[in-house]
């Protein structure tokens, strides 16, 4: 860099750069929402138009005639259930990993974490055949269970770290009073580990809500998830782009609002383990 560049680039360039970053991040969402408000004729205009008369017709049709509403409810049921289950199973496991000494702990931790790296397609093939044989295709419970393969490791990873940050003296004090390990976990450590639990719950919910492949393979109609529904509009020659974008908006916007509200925690969770 030239010596002329002393401390910061001129303020103007910094501001311009920040605005460009923001625009690039946000523009696709702007385009998604505006396309969802176009009629099919307007949506297929070449070159695309930026100003037009908006209509909510796509939303009405998608939600009430094509059944997107049902799939959104399915997605919600599945994402909430699998998150609750992952927390119920993962929090005690994290407590054990953070607090107890036992043989094979390192291997166990490694196994939990490796699960997160495995491509879902590896599990999708056998899971499909097993679910088919057990009559579990197109059932909510099937997705709730299989989503544990990525939610449980996330919960264990984040919450173990959080429990380790809780001072051990507190345990000891409670122990002298005769508290059981379970009481120590629920009454003493858990309240202090709540931020970590919340972060892992947010991740678990977003991952489950966003998941497509298992939803595509393991559901048909009754338990169909919203992303699988959005994809099913893609068949045929004349694609209903407005409706596809309306469905996409319905899927994405709640998550975006949620992510913005919890952005501090989300960023903390994402960067956790990355800075130590």
């Amino acid at each position: 860099m030239a010596a002329a560049n002393r401390r910061a680039p001129p303020l103007f360039w910094q501001i311009a750069l920040l605005l460009v970053i923001m625009a690039v991040c946000v523009f696709p969402f702007y385009w998604m929402v505006t396309t969802s408000l176009k009629t099919q004729v307007v949506a297929l205009n070449a070159p695309p138009v930026w100003f037009f008369e908006p209509t909510l017709e796509n939303y009405r049709e998608a939600l009430f005639e094509d059944g997107v509403l049902d799939t959104l409810i399915n997605s919600l049921i599945i994402a909430i259930s699998t998150t609750a289950l992952a927390l119920a199973l993962g929090v005690p496991a994290a407590f054990a990993l953070a607090r107890f000494e036992f043989r094979g702990k390192k291997d166990l931790w490694f196994w939990f974490i490796t699960n997160r790296m495995v491509s879902p397609i590896v599990l999708a093939l056998p899971f499909f055949l097993i679910a088919k044989n057990l009559g579990l295709l197109d059932k909510h419970i099937t997705l709730i269970l299989i989503y544990l393969t990525f939610n449980l490791p996330i919960v264990i990873w984040i919450v173990t770290d959080q429990f380790r940050g809780v001072p051990y003296d507190l345990d000891e004090a409670a122990r002298l009073e005769g508290a059981s390990q379970f009481t120590i976990m629920t009454r003493i450590c858990l309240p202090l580990a709540m931020p970590g639990v919340a972060v892992s719950a947010i991740f678990s919910f977003i991952f489950s809500w966003n998941e497509l492949m298992f939803g595509l393979i393991l559901t048909r109609t009754d338990a169909k998830t919203a992303p699988a529904m959005a994809v099913s509009f893609m068949e045929g020659y004349n694609l209903p782009y407005g409706k596809i974008m309306a469905t996409s908006s319905l899927i994405v916007i709640p998550v975006l609002i949620f992510a913005l509200l919890a952005s501090k925690q989300l960023v903390r969770g994402l960067t956790m383990g990355a800075v130590k």
């Binding site: 991040c25 946000v26 696709p28 969402f29 385009w31 998604m32 396309t35 977003i206 809500w209 966003n210 497509l212 992303p227 959005a230 994809v231 893609m234 694609l239 782009y241 596809i244 974008m245 996409s248 899927i251 994405v252 998550v255 975006l256 949620f258 992510a259 913005l260 952005s263 989300l266 960023v267 994402l270």
Partner: peptide
């Protein structure tokens, strides 16, 4: 934060459009 939270399938659909 927004791009990361976006449903991957929707990113593909947006790409199509």
């Amino acid at each position: 934060v927004l791009p990361m939270a976006t449903t991957y399938a929707v990113v593909g659909l947006l790409g199509q459009v």
